[in-house]
Amino acid sequence: MDTPKSNKLEIIIPAFRGHSQNFLLVLDGISEEDALKRIEGRTNHIVWMVGNFLDMRYALGNVFGISEEFEFKDFFSQGKALDENLKYPTLEQLKADFHKISPFVYNKLLEASDEELEKAFPMGMNIDFFPETVLNFVGMCIGREDYLCGQIGLMRRILGYEGMKYDFDKDLKY
Rank of each mutant, 00 (worst) to 15 (best):
G18A: 01
V134E: 02
P14N: 11
A15D: 04
I11Y: 04
M155Y: 00
K170V: 14
V134D: 02
F104K: 14
I46W: 08
I11C: 04
N126L: 11
M123L: 14
N22P: 01
E33I: 15
Q21T: 00
N107S: 13
L110H: 01
L135P: 00
L82S: 09
K37T: 04
S113G: 05
L154Q: 11
H99Q: 09
S113A: 04
F121M: 14
S102F: 06
G150M: 08
N7P: 01
G124R: 08
L148S: 06
T90E: 10
G61N: 10
F53M: 12
R42E: 11
L27Q: 00
I127G: 03
E71L: 05
G150W: 09
H19D: 08
I46S: 05
N52G: 09
G79S: 05
F23L: 13
F137P: 01
K119S: 02
G41R: 03
P89I: 04
Q151I: 09
F168G: 01
E69D: 13
P89Q: 04
G160S: 09
V26W: 08
S20F: 07
E68G: 02
F23P: 00
L25A: 11
S67Q: 11
E84R: 08
Y166M: 06
F98K: 09
C149T: 15
G61S: 10
E10F: 07
S6E: 02
G61Q: 11
I12A: 13
F130Q: 06
D167K: 15
G150R: 05
M1G: 15
N7R: 06
